[in-house]
Amino acid sequence: MRVLHTADFHAGRVLRGYDRTPEIHAALTEIAELAESEKVDAVLISGDLFDTANPSADAEKALFDFFLRLRSAEIPSVAIAGNHDSSARLASVTGLLGWVGVQLVAEVTPRPGDLIRSIQTKGGETLTVGALPYLSERRLVKAADLLGGEVSDWRQKYREGMEFFLGKLAAGFQPGHVNMLMLHATLDGSQPSGSEKTMQFHLDNAYTLSPENLPRAAQYVAMGHIHRPQQAGSAPLAHYPGSVIQLDFGEGGEKKQVNLVEVSPGQPARVIPIPLGSGRELRTIRVPLDQVEARLERESQKKDGALLKVLVEAPAGTATAGLKDRVLSALPSALAVELSALQEDLALPSLKREGLSLLELYERYWHEKRGELPDDQRAAFKEAHEAVQSHVEASGEEVA
């Protein structure tokens, strides 16, 4: 049996105001063509189909075109929701996607069987997939309660909670089938890209799994969430295929891929990485202030299509008025211009984080990534923050 494993599409991704969706669309087209040319029996997508909970129409088109291409090639697929996805939004289209051969698992239900999906291959073999969508610690406790687990002590026991669910999935494996597990989570020892360290405005990576928590009955564990391609476990065999394009400057230089998994019932799986060629390269260039003009001239002559982040090294206190506009004018492919001296001088009161409210931190984050924070986005953030505070006060919990 041949299974193509991919993850972390992030359709709708916007980087410093630049929409990456056309590149992601091209990558998904490339992956669908690979699935057909490699004659795979199924495709597994391990979460983060979209970059935001409310994706754009172009982002939805990129994803749905991908699934339609698989349908045209008569290739079934199984997908799960990731932490960037709206599980409720995806759950609303599971029925429709089922008509084109997509078994989408968006939410955990009181029926464990809903997490077990099977595909009959043209060769007569059966692929059984235990598919667990992303669960934050809060959702883990709620979902475990629905399935009858003892949750009284689980608020600080993420691993035990996840192991409970993984055991439920392994119980659905069948002798004579190819049995795989799919989840969107962080395994101990996995190496993140720079993007996971800086771009995600949440703390979910504080909760990790040990490879020892994975059921050994799984012949392959199809992981999602970490954007750097890598093997993350050996018993059972667990892999992250990584994101499909370089999504953030922290991923600059990474080679993107999908995994082709060859496996037979009861036999060890063999993983063959297949490189992807879609997506513009993200490159960070560092240049001293007194060499800016010459370096900009050289970079402007390059025709490699890379998107640039320019770090200008300038002594503290140096006058740099108009520098950013000069760089952006000379290099249309530059998405970001930063002064390294200002970035490093954390002693400046204006750059300290201490004493800033959560809203002020969010405004700084948004400004760094996309520019001025829109009023409606600010209002939505305040409303969400106030709702969380009200819940915490009502429950008597403390915010970590």
Rank of each mutant, 00 (worst) to 15 (best):
D19G: 01
P211A: 15
A53E: 04
R286V: 14
E397K: 02
E363H: 06
E299N: 11
Y134A: 00
A400N: 04
S46K: 12
G396T: 02
F173M: 06
Q200L: 07
L169A: 13
L90P: 00
E383P: 04
T52E: 00
K255F: 05
Y240F: 08
V108C: 11
H202L: 08
R155W: 12
D114P: 09
T52Q: 01
M162T: 11
L127A: 12
I272K: 08
A91C: 05
L335R: 04
P112Q: 12
V292T: 09
P332S: 10
S46L: 11
G95N: 08
G101Q: 13
P241R: 12
A330C: 09
K309H: 05
K122H: 13
A384M: 06
D48K: 01
A42E: 12
H227C: 06
H391G: 09
W154G: 13
G224P: 05
G130H: 11
P241E: 10
T126F: 01
G266F: 06
Y362C: 03
F381D: 02
V292D: 02
V178N: 09
G277M: 12
N259W: 12
I226F: 07
P175M: 00
Q230F: 04
F64T: 10
L49V: 11
R364G: 04
P265C: 02
G250L: 01
E293D: 15
P22S: 09
H202P: 05
F164G: 13
Y18F: 07
Q230Y: 00
N259Q: 13
I24H: 06
G17S: 01
D41N: 09
K39E: 15
V141S: 14
G396M: 08
P374W: 06
T126I: 02
S193W: 03
D85L: 01
S86A: 03
W154H: 09
L342E: 05
A53G: 00
V3S: 12
D345F: 00
F67T: 09
L346D: 05
S278I: 05
L203Q: 07
V388H: 03
A319Q: 14
A11H: 00
A91N: 13
I285W: 13
K157Q: 15
Q389T: 13
N179K: 08
R286C: 10
Q120D: 14
L351P: 06
E383C: 04
R139K: 08
A81E: 06
T126R: 10
P273R: 08
A238N: 02
F381K: 01
A400F: 09
A88C: 03
E338N: 01
R298M: 13
G17D: 00
P112S: 11
Y362T: 01
A319F: 11
L181M: 11
L373H: 01
E163G: 14
A53Q: 00
V105H: 09
L104T: 05
G149E: 15
